[in-house]
């Protein structure tokens, strides 16, 4: 999804106040942006804390900053800069993380992003953008560029094979249909687990994607979901404080008694050698 991200970022940078910061990552991905906007892209070097602090500084001067890195680096390494400098000041920085879930399978534990939702969804202002296909990447970017705010864009490392339609902006908290099936029972995904959902869908439930969500969209999502009797969530993240548990929170303290089932990555320390497909088969969501 990295290439569609950069392509869309260049295309949508109409106001030209978008800055892209990287921390010495993004080889063979970010160069087209740098070529087009040479004074708008900076390599912070291997220093995530500084990159996030600088992003806040640039954003505080009425710019929208995209801070790009691999999932674990742009989140946990600089969590306090995100909390204090970006989220507390409510600054338009979009933290971009590449390699959602087990995307960097072979690179091992240090490069897996299996707890990032837990961290990012705990912040007050951060909106989570978790697109599941190329059109959703474009649509999510369209929304966030039009409505700059603290946000977390979580991308799959692999290029998505889905057909790209020049999509309209995706709305926060709204679910989008991927497969038309059962009217009352659905599978709900976020991020690039749509193919897994299709494979596991033996009972022909409808499949929906929720590409933009977060603390502020719970009410909106509840309204979207309350009409379904059964909701199965699928994610490439641990269950604790992940997407499925967020969906459960949407229903907490309400009168609704919908059945919710969460499918997620096994909550184990994954330190096996393995490609993404191998690790997903072994530890990923199952039927």
């Amino acid at each position: 999804m990295r290439k569609i991200f950069i392509k869309s970022l260049i295309e949508l940078n109409k106001k030209k106040n978008i800055y892209l910061l990287i921390n010495d990552l993004g080889f063979n991905v970010v160069e087209p942006f740098q070529k087009k906007f040479p004074k708008k892209m900076y390599n912070a070097g291997v220093s995530e804390q500084n990159m996030m602090g600088m992003s806040a500084g640039i954003a505080s001067e009425k710019n929208h900053v995209f801070a790009y890195s691999i999932g674990n680096f742009s989140t946990f390494r600089c969590a306090e800069q995100i909390r204090n400098d970006i989220d507390y000041h409510n600054l338009p920085v979009t933290i971009v993380s590449v390699g959602s879930g087990l995307g960097y399978g072979n690179l091992g534990y240090t490069h897996h992003a299996l707890q990032d939702f837990a961290l990012m969804r705990s912040f007050h202002n951060i909106l989570i953008l978790s697109p599941g296909n190329n059109s959703e990447v474009h649509g999510a970017l369209k929304y966030i560029i039009k409505n700059p705010q603290p946000s977390y864009l979580r991308l799959d490392k692999d290029e998505n094979k889905s057909e790209f339609r020049n999509s309209s902006a995706i709305k926060p908290g709204k679910i989008y249909k991927i497969f038309n099936g059962d009217k009352k029972k659905i599978i709900l995904t976020t991020g690039s687990v749509q193919n897994i959902a299709k494979k596991l869908n033996k009972n022909k439930y409808s499949i929906y994607s929720l590409p933009i969500w977060g603390k502020k969209t719970k009410k909106k999502t509840l309204n979207e979901l309350k009409k379904y009797d059964k909701i199965i969530t699928i994610e490439d993240h641990f269950n604790d404080a992940g997407f499925g548990s967020w969906v459960r929170e949407c229903f907490s303290n309400t009168k609704y008694k919908n059945t919710i089932i969460n499918k997620y990555i096994d909550q184990k320390v994954i330190n096996h050698v393995g490609s993404k497909s191998y690790l997903m088969k072994k530890f990923g969501p199952k039927g």
Partner: peptide, 23 residues
Amino acid sequence: EFSTGSLGHGLPVAVGKALFFKS
């Protein structure tokens, strides 16, 4: 201009601002 309290945050933010003005 900016809230601080946890040390080591102010300089990176200032550098971001200075970088913007310079750019």
